[in-house]
């Protein structure tokens, strides 16, 4: 009987008007545009959830200060790149009337082997994020390593991006080619 009945999306109270079969409901709710946004600040256990227009206020009032720069091109200079443990580096880039989070995360996979993941997220909806691409480049002539991809929305979270390596990924050996005095410069361009 249940499979023949349509049930409302669990985010009805946030504005979603869809009704779905039990089989379709979980998948829709995972992607529902009305699902509240989670705190996008990486490396915290923050359980905040709210509407998109409250995210910036939450970030600035409840978390460590995040440096923001204006412009489509920036050099994200991550310092103390060899520090041990699970580490993140975060900054904000403001351009095209939006704010973008630039995130670099390091994970110690096993003794002596570290992986770094770098990517860009829009503080905006998935539809808005679809309009932007980003390019990240490590440069130390004659070597150069670049990654280009669609900007993700903070609505998509970061776990899948890292799990699928859908970002600029490099390891301990690669970083030695590009780091200078323990700092790594990543050229970031949003278009």
């Amino acid at each position: 009987v249940a499979s023949s009945v349509l049930f409302p999306c669990k985010f009805t109270s946030f504005g979603c008007g869809l009704t779905l079969s039990p089989a379709e409901k979980p998948e829709h709710e995972e992607l529902c545009e009305f699902r509240p946004y989670s705190c996008p600040c990486p490396g915290t256990c923050c359980h905040w959830q709210g509407q998109l227009n409250a995210v910036m206020h939450h970030l600035t009032s409840h978390h460590r200060p995040i440096t923001t720069v204006q412009g489509e091109d920036v050099i994200f200079l991550a310092t103390n790149i060899h520090i041990t443990g699970a580490i993140d580096w975060v900054m904000m880039q403001a351009c095209f009337g939006h704010h973008f989070l630039l995130i670099l995360q390091k994970m110690d996979k096993y003794e002596g082997y570290r992986q770094y993941f770098a990517f860009v997220q829009l503080i905006g909806t998935r539809n808005e994020a679809d309009k932007f691409n980003y390019r990240m480049e490590l440069n130390s002539p004659p070597r150069r390593m670049a990654w280009e991809a669609r900007v993700r929305s903070i609505h998509e979270g970061i776990a899948a991006t890292i799990r699928n390596s859908d970002c600029l990924v490099f390891d301990t050996d690669i970083i030695e080619f590009f780091a200078v005095s323990g700092s790594l410069g990543i050229n970031v361009t949003i278009s």
């Binding site: 920036v74 050099i75 200079l77 580096w89 900054m91 995360q105």
Partner: peptide, 24 residues
């Protein structure tokens, strides 16, 4: 044609909480 050097921003590291690592 003018070329504007992109601004360089120093970003300090931040240690993760263990809970996040487990979620990943």
């Amino acid at each position: 044609r003018t070329y504007r050097m992109p601004k360089e921003v120093r970003v300090e590291p931040h240690k993760f909480a263990a809970e996040l690592i487990h979620r990943l």
